[in-house]
Design a protein around this nucleic acid. Sequence first.
DNA 1: CACTTGACCTGTCCGC
DNA 2: TGCGGACAGGTCAAGT
Length: 288
Amino acid sequence: MPELPEVETIRIGLERLLKNKKISKVDFNWPKSFPNDSKLVNKFLINATIKRIIRRGKAIIIELNTDYSLVIHLKMTGQLVYRSNGVKFGGGHPTDSLLGSLPDKSTRVTIEFSDSSFLFFNDQRKFGWIKLIPTDQVLNIPFFLRLGPEPLEPDFNEKLFTERLGRRSKTSIKAVLLDQSVIAGIGNIYADESLWESKIHPTRLVGGLSSTELSRLHKAIIKVMNLSLSNGGSTDRNYVDAEGNRGNYLKFANVFRREGSPCNRCGNTIIKIRVAGRGTHICPFCQI
DNA sequence: CACTTGACCTGTCCGC
DNA sequence: TGCGGACAGGTCAAGT
């Protein structure tokens, strides 16, 4: 589900809502969602206080005052929603909320705080996970070791972008954009949107892209991600922020889930094809 | 090695 | 209405 802008939106909300809260209790009903040793949980999670919350790629890291951290990956359908005691419905407009009272049948992990507020980890498809890891070892788990650079950091310049792509010259540009070891945080929505923005067809091989096209794509990735971030991310099906609210970016999307509609640039019809095993939305006229 | 496919899961939608 | 199949924002392992 969530890509970089959605995960960052959740992180910002959690930072505001959870900082300095003390964890009093943790429940889970699906072991793969919370694969942790109960002795370590009792020693380093229960009664721990939340220091800060950071993000790397599509993962969230909640740092505790016990020198342990909760590392969270939401995969396709994960949600992290905070509720203060007694508040049964999400913030924002009730009609905009995807969530009713919590916990519900998709709740996999419930974290209770000493002030009787809760953080619910909901995950319909059960692909996501929350792992308790010593803070100084977090970045050494395989997921982070493989991860490429952050596209919204200042050092992600055109030179670095080209260097990262260079290793994969015979692969389609869409597959490479989705590869987290090349660049961290891009998923299916922003791959499609960035390729439309830069007028590049997703099946083009990396080695065949001109420096002008690479330059356009580099700028497009940053533009699209920042636009989404400033709109609270994209809600297609499951995504909600830390208070249960949907994101607004899809109102600005030019191709994603717009098949059958006219291209905002040339008026031809957007189509959906399959590239790198993923549903892929393009304007076949202006993406060449 | 690079690339593709299947697996992990539940739910929804579409065609018959 | 029921049933089968395809598909969904992600990653990882195994296969070619």
